[in-house]
């Protein structure tokens, strides 16, 4: 599996589209100057902009890499040669996934370092009212990466059954958008007003979707990072366990589906 991880990483680093996406990180250079235009809360705004830029780049990477890796391998007939080696389909799928997941963490490290430099420059130029909580900023970036690794897992699983890139690309984007609000919908449905306004059938359907779709809300720690709110260690641990469990289940489903796929 290690050699599959290795060639996956080589493929990403040599891809021109990836290089184009990573070029977006040049925007970090402008963040302190743009934030200074607000005239107040410059550091907070720098943090917000930096974390949002990381999120945007990571989303592009997750959709681009997750949705196209398996699809492209099948479309370009690479799978005929690779799957005829003594490699099980699940090993191949998990190897590809781990390669992308490792890359997402490397990208988070690179983008996070750029963000930290950018925030530090802003904080030195315009000292913030609240002290910067570096641990919260770093944790926020790490959990952001975990969130997008889930998106990668989902899009790769969709690619195992799809014959075009539409399902993995748009499916991943839709699931990402839905996944960021599932917790809010769940909380709303448990309020007295929702109990009265929403029918039981819709509530049940929403509950099914709540468990089925990834709950990405828990991975969003931007508010803690921006306003230096201390993190809840137990909550982080639970989110970490959720990440492992959800990714494991999604990839297992993907491996099962991929094992049944005909390589015509």
């Amino acid at each position: 599996m290690l050699s599959i991880v290795r060639i996956t990483l080589k493929g990403i680093f040599r891809d021109r589209i990836f290089q184009g996406i990573m070029a977006l990180s040049l925007f970090f250079v402008f963040i302190p100057s743009v934030a200074s235009l607000s005239m107040r809360q410059v550091t907070e705004l720098s943090t917000t902009l930096s974390l949002s830029l990381i999120s945007f780049i990571m989303l592009l990477l997750a959709v681009f890499l997750g949705a196209t890796s398996i699809w492209k391998d099948i479309e370009r007939r690479y799978t005929f040669s690779v799957l005829s080696l003594p490699v099980s389909r699940s090993t191949y799928l998990v190897g590809r996934f781990l390669g992308i997941a490792i890359f997402m963490l490397i990208a988070a490290l690179f983008l996070g370092s750029a963000a930290i430099v950018s925030i530090k420059i802003a904080s030195l130029t315009y000292p913030p009212a609240r002290p910067l909580l570096w641990f919260a900023i770093i944790t926020s970036i790490v959990f952001d990466a975990l969130k997008y690794i889930i998106v990668v897992a989902v899009s790769m699983t969709l690619a195992t059954v799809s014959t075009s890139f539409f399902l993995p690309v748009f499916g991943a984007i839709s699931i990402f958008m839905a996944g960021t609000v599932t917790q809010q919908v769940f909380d709303y449905l448990h309020t007295p007003s929702a109990q009265a306004a929403v029918s039981a059938a819709i509530r049940k359907a929403a509950l099914v979707l709540y468990y089925l779709l990834p709950n990405l809300g828990g991975f969003d720690l931007k508010v803690h990072a921006i306003y230096a709110i201390p993190l809840n260690t137990q909550g982080l641990l639970l989110t970490g366990v959720y990440f492992l469990a959800y990714t494991g289940i999604v990839m297992s489903v993907g491996a099962l589906l991929f094992a049944r796929r005909e390589m015509k």
């Binding site: 493929g11 007939r77 040669s81 005829s84």
Partner: peptide, 18 residues
């Protein structure tokens, strides 16, 4: 079963970045 086989697919394609 594929341990002792060398397989050449029709119109082969390999990871072209390698």
């Amino acid at each position: 079963s594929r341990r002792q086989v060398g397989f050449l697919p029709e119109n082969p394609a390999f990871y072209d970045y390698l």
